[in-house]
């Protein structure tokens, strides 16, 4: 049985930088330095990934006036499937496409979906594997704690 846990990185490694295409141009994560970033790797064939979108949309809406960004990175090999799902949701954050899983390999993951919380200094803080209803509050609190660390 796969042991799924959410490790807090012990030494906060630097989050790998990347540039990926979105439907609205290229997104470069280094331009988001100074913000709390939540990166989520997902695919249209993965039901927990799809179930996490309402929560992510709600989080982005909740913290919309704060320096908080979500980047959803799609790993579908067929972009059409991803676009179909995107069209069915009211997504209020950028969705990037990484069909070769280059960025996914850089970040490393155990299962789908995998999310990474990055602090304003560009360091990886927590990796979440899977999407669980019971850990939604814990994740929100982690985002909130990191946002509190940013000086106004």
């Amino acid at each position: 049985m796969l042991l799924l846990f959410n490790p807090v990185y012990a030494d906060y490694p630097t989050a790998p930088k990347f540039q990926l295409p979105t439907n609205q141009g290229v997104i470069d994560i280094s331009q988001l330095q100074g913000k709390v970033i939540y990166i989520d790797f997902w695919a249209s064939w993965c039901r927990p990934c799809k179930n996490s979108f309402p929560w992510m949309i709600a989080m982005k809406e909740k913290f919309k006036d704060l320096p908080f960004e979500i980047i959803a990175i799609n790993l579908d090999k067929d972009k059409k499937l991803a676009d179909e799902f995107i069209a069915s949701q009211n997504i209020n954050f950028p969705v990037a496409f990484d069909p070769q899983a280059n960025v996914a390999t850089l970040y490393g993951m155990e299962g789908m979906p995998s999310s990474f919380l990055i602090d304003p200094d560009g360091k990886l803080r927590i990796r979440y594997t899977g999407f669980w209803n019971k850990s939604k509050n814990e994740k929100e609190k982690a985002i909130y704690n990191l946002l509190n660390k940013i000086k106004p």
Binding site: A43, K77, A101, A104, M109, E110, M112, S114
Partner: peptide, 8 residues
């Protein structure tokens, strides 16, 4: 090992 993104 099969990578998570190859399990479609």
């Amino acid at each position: 090992t099969v990578q998570p993104w190859d399990k479609d």
